[in-house]
Design a protein around this nucleic acid. Structure first.
Lengths: 327, 327
DNA sequence: ATGAAAGCGCTAACAT
DNA sequence: ATGTTAGCGCTTTCAT
């Protein structure tokens, strides 16, 4: 494997000069620059990031923490992160935590051991105490899910407002019996979306019915099916469902279809996220579009900014209600 | 940031001894070992992988090349790779090429620059010439899609046989007019699956009808819809569709539903891959299950083996026909 | 069982 | 404009 020494020798210059050429510094005469470039080509030289990274005390790797790679919600965000990262010569390490503290810790170790320069956490179930501790020494950003009092910068949307609009839409097209298919109340977004749901009902004088509020352990398709089974078993069946994730909504859709009922005639369904698949279902899903790609780019920019030692501010992005066939 | 020097000083030993403790060598007396461990704890020391990696001339990072992160087919494979990688102290860098040579090259550079120790390529559109060239100097494995004459070790399934069984299943339940929704013929798997399709028809005395064979540029949902539109426009409409990917099949499903026809009564559909979503559709999809997780673990094991300097053999894994509601 | 020292490949401060 | 050299943090060979 040829190194910078050999290039210097071949070109008849010092390693410093080669390094200067490599890094595009303009303090090199064009004559020597050409000599060096020739030597590089000749020897098929590729600079080693191992040496470079040690010298610069950086890894140029960003960690992305997600609970599950199977959840399409994160895909667009990741693309946004990646594009910004690549443009700034960073690479991203995608880390699936399975919301498992042990796995999480493996990845935290990567930043402790200088294998990563910073973290974008998207795991709602992240151990926030550890994250806070880590954030004192390392650069960390929270994306989508966040903690107000952690002091860790975040980018997200206004979940309460988004949820409010979704439910208001259902009310406006005539629904009064609206179920909320929520996830786990220990997540902030879950509590915020429930608040939006309540506000919409209150504002329209619809009394809260606790039978209509369900919680699921995970955001998966199967959990949507199970929750929908329970809802269909209620004596006073709701005429509309607002699910806090498209995956849950798609599970509900399937279960409603299976029971012989029709969407949206018998039961209307609204999801959340606008994942790709929400357009492939039958009927297509009305949903809240999060600006996922944008969220990713902003998160990456914030993180890189933070790594450079700058202070960064929290960001709240806009969402949008997308009305399709299911309502 | 505390380093090995400071630990050595605090413990009153040499850096060599600290390094020995760090690497669990048994040539250290338990008395000194304890001294060192105390110092490590005291100083909150975390060994830097930057120094370690340079010294060992390795990055402990594996590159995974996939055409698109949105294709669920790769998810389970990635999980398999990751589990093996983590267990051997490797981390994986997920690289989405978009089948774009430029992006591909960014990632190839990572191994040229020692930022990655090896590559698992799953991109059917990979530039095989570059890959071959790279494989002379670096450790590379192909997973799922491969090239026989490249000399690059691969793990895959028997595509011809899998396809044959899928079509045979359609024939056995009474179909004679069977369309093939294929991808692009420049991919090996595409040609192999077409051969399986032909063999099944021939074996049952069904003449080949070129109108029934369609090619799509990509494996996405929308392409399945478009292809299905064409099929529905045929004067002699087929009664069954075999699509070479679940995503295509799901697109077909949606289009058939939209046209008012019924699956499987009017048209039966078979997919390929058994992605998670194939179970969420209405009706659920009959498909060929690839052992994706296993494929991932095998690929990772092969690659790590190769990095260690061993020779590795190609592997062909078993597949399975999963009959569900769409046939 | 332990230490001294070389060196992995690079960058940058300093000198000329 | 270019060279010399120290040093990033670690592992390992060679002595003792």
């Amino acid at each position: 494997m040829t190194n910078i020494q050999q290039v210097a020798k071949q070109a008849g210059v010092s390693v410093a000069t080669v390094s200067r050429v490599l890094n595009g510094q303009n303090t090199v005469s064009s004559k020597t620059r050409i000599k060096v470039e020739d030597a590089i080509k000749n020897l098929n030289y590729e600079p080693s990031m191992l040496g470079r990274n040690l010298r610069n005390s950086e890894s140029r790797i960003l960690l992305i923490l997600i609970p599950s790679i199977s959840n399409p919600f994160y895909l667009e965000i990741i693309k946004g992160i990646e594009n910004v990262a690549l443009s700034q010569n960073y690479n991203i390490l995608l880390c699936e935590t399975d919301s498992n503290p042990e796995k999480e810790n493996i990845y935290f170790d990567l930043v402790r051991k200088k294998m990563a320069d910073g973290i974008i956490s998207m795991d709602p179930a992240v151990n926030i105490e550890t994250l806070k501790e880590l954030a004192e020494k390392y650069s960390i950003i929270q994306c989508s899910e966040y903690n107000v009092d952690s002091g860790i910068p975040y980018v997200t949307i206004d979940n309460e407002e988004a949820s409010y609009r979704a439910v208001k839409h259902l009310i406006q097209i005539g629904h009064k019996k609206i179920a909320l298919m929520n996830s786990d109340e220990r997540f902030l977004y879950s509590r915020q979306r429930e608040m939006g749901y309540q506000r919409a009902l209150e504002e329209h004088g619809i009394p809260l019915n606790n039978d209509y509020i369900l919680y699921t352990k995970h955001l998966g398709f199967e959990h949507g099916q199970q929750a929908m089974k329970k809802i269909l078993g209620l004596h006073d069946r709701p005429t509309a469902i607002f699910a806090v994730s498209d995956l849950l909504a798609i599970g509900a859709l399937k279960e409603i279809n299976a029971s012989g009922l029709h969407v949206p005639n018998d039961i209307a369904v609204v999801g959340f996220d606008k994942i790709d698949f929400s357009n492939m279902t039958n009927p297509t899903l009305t949903t809240i579009a999060q600006p996922m790609y944008k969220m990713g780019t902003v998160a990456a920019e914030m993180l890189i900014d933070k790594i450079r030692g700058n202070d960064v501010d929290n960001v709240i992005l806009n969402h949008e209600l997308v009305i399709r066939e299911s309502t």
